[in-house]
Nucleic acid binder design. Structure first.
Lengths: 117, 117
DNA sequence: CGTATCAATTACTCCATTGGTATAGACGGG
DNA sequence: CCCGTCTATACCAATGGAGTAATTGATACG
């Protein structure tokens, strides 16, 4: 069993760091663009409509987190997803958010019925 | 299929917000303390050794994110986990981090063998 | 009642991070 | 060999979030 005291500060910090990487909309957008397959920096710059420096910085963060992998070809750098965990996590969160919204919709439907009777 | 263009900015923002809640060590520590069951604010203050205001703020963040639920009894406020999703996510990340470290250990072992032969 | 305790909120400071501009470095084409 | 393109980095301004101290509000106890 996992008890409260056995979890060290370093472990908690590393888990927090991992979630921190996924807590930026721009990074999630880049991850989403990489679902299709590897893309070079320029492609991502055009797709995200932000500065090239910004894209490179976010890519570096995800690369160091082990989420992405990097391959160079000439002057271009191609990035691809190295670990599907981030997608799993995103899907879980998305599904849960969807469920909550559906629950809320049910409450509205229920109220609609009660007020009609 | 989920394509890149279909994911709206609001959805990305909400997913990022959810991960953002889990990206703070203090909040993960509190979540971990709540594995045993509900606890009042004072208990968490003593366990985390931080200020009461700080604990209350983190609890509010997780409450509004739908991760925790709140119950009052006299002047005390008892918090408990309302959604196991956060635990699932933490477990997935922890397992993956552990796997990576084990992989690294294998690399060291392999190098140890090759240099010995 | 008056006091003590518990929790939430406010105001504030400090630090981390984001995004932009500008620059440097690497490679390919002419 | 120079120029254009692509990427990474350094620097800066602005923003956001964590933590603390102090205050307020509410309830239990004497």
């Amino acid at each position: 069993m996992r008890s409260a005291e056995t979890v060290s500060i370093e472990v908690v910090q590393q888990v927090a760091d991992y979630f921190s990487v996924l807590s930026e909309p721009m990074r999630l957008r880049i991850l989403n663009l990489l679902r299709d397959g590897e893309k070079c920096v320029q492609d991502l710059v055009e797709a995200t409509e932000t500065s090239q420096a910004n894209v490179s910085k976010h890519l570096k963060v995800m690369l160091q987190a082990g989420i992405l992998s990097r391959r160079t070809e000439g002057t271009s750098a191609f990035y691809s997803v190295a670990d599907d965990l981030s997608y799993e996590l995103c899907n879980l969160v998305c599904d849960r958010l969807a469920s909550r919204i559906e629950e809320q919709a049910k409450h509205f439907r229920a109220f609609s019925l009660t007020s009609r009777s």
